[in-house]
Nucleic acid binder design. Sequence first.
DNA 1: GCCATTACGCTACGACTCGTAGCGAAAGCG
DNA 2: CGCTTTCGCTACGAGTCGTAGCGTAATGGC
Lengths: 210, 210
Amino acid sequence: MQSHPVPARPGRPRSAAADAAILAATREALVELGWSKLTLGDVATRAGVAKTTLYRRWAGKHELVVDAVAELFDALRLPDRGSLAADIEGVVLQFAAILARPEAKSGLMAVVAESTRDEALRDRIRTSIVDRQKRLVLEGRARAQGRGELPQSDPAESERTADLIFDMVAGAVVHRTLVSGHPADEEWVRGFTQVLLLGLAGAGAAAAGD
Amino acid sequence: MQSHPVPARPGRPRSAAADAAILAATREALVELGWSKLTLGDVATRAGVAKTTLYRRWAGKHELVVDAVAELFDALRLPDRGSLAADIEGVVLQFAAILARPEAKSGLMAVVAESTRDEALRDRIRTSIVDRQKRLVLEGRARAQGRGELPQSDPAESERTADLIFDMVAGAVVHRTLVSGHPADEEWVRGFTQVLLLGLAGAGAAAAGD
DNA sequence: GCCATTACGCTACGACTCGTAGCGAAAGCG
DNA sequence: CGCTTTCGCTACGAGTCGTAGCGTAATGGC
């Protein structure tokens, strides 16, 4: 995350095992205590390191939790189920499964809330989580365009549409899971995917017709 | 919010002016300090009341901020612009404008994050904010069905679709504003509305054809 | 092998916030 | 006028924060 590959600086190197232990302990504490009751002292104890070690690597609670949560989303894979609808349903279900985990729920929304007043934190979230997963939208769309399920898009228009898709997918799942409080199960995902795809296909056709 | 209409109990009644002052002071503190640095002692000072007065009415930071933020969303109105697309664009733009305000951003996401571990807080959010605004979806759809812009929906299906629409609208705007960090301006809202409407119309037609 | 440099664990600390208790005074209601 | 409840104020223990200081451990350069 923030470790340089070969800094080649003198002195004792930082323990990579400590990094992993701290991040794992952070997720464990998020599950048991939630965001507001999570303290850095407690995380340090769980990880078996001193509190000062933790402060040498992360500036505070916010940055630590971003890194701890970001690792959860690296498990996302774009499945190849043969049709765009099935592919989207698959990845949305994976996303929903991750968001259903308590360490993701309580941690992610809290750092997003804090990022509204902290430019550096917002960049860290975008770099570590959002932009890294936007690949799924790009791959999925490219594959679907190859199949002819979606119209070829103007490269200039492409970027904007990808952002719109990402906002709609991530936003709807997050809102369903966290605000409405209902599970994003297969039935819901199927309905959502249908609306999204029909809308995108229609919008693409309308744009082509202009 | 939590005040009984006519409790008719003896003794000195609670000051309604204090309630209003506290909620206004809470929003002011959210703007200046954000969620994490907001303290109840500071809010009490701003409102010109004692800290103990504040604790007699709200159990803690979470409940107070929910009530303070909920008032912001009461300004939402469903415009009548003649077409469903224009109506939706209007209400989404209003929603985006409220979410762009710093007191809404930092406060809302923080209490949502906390609500993942607090059942009572989740209910309070749903009652005070979410369910109260769901009326916009219901009114808007009923009006559009009267115009013939949307197919008549099976009453059993109706509830589920309303939830889906609400999750998609609120989720996308929140994600756009808070996570992606770009404004939900007219151009974005137009594109989003187009995808949503074409998707809903298509899904309705597909359901009718089954 | 020695030394400069950095990381680590531990303890202790002041500053701050939390939420509550206790008090006397004020404001309604019958 | 009494009863009841609220209000402002002060004070308090408990808990967390982030940092400083110290001795020790682990590297790389000479």
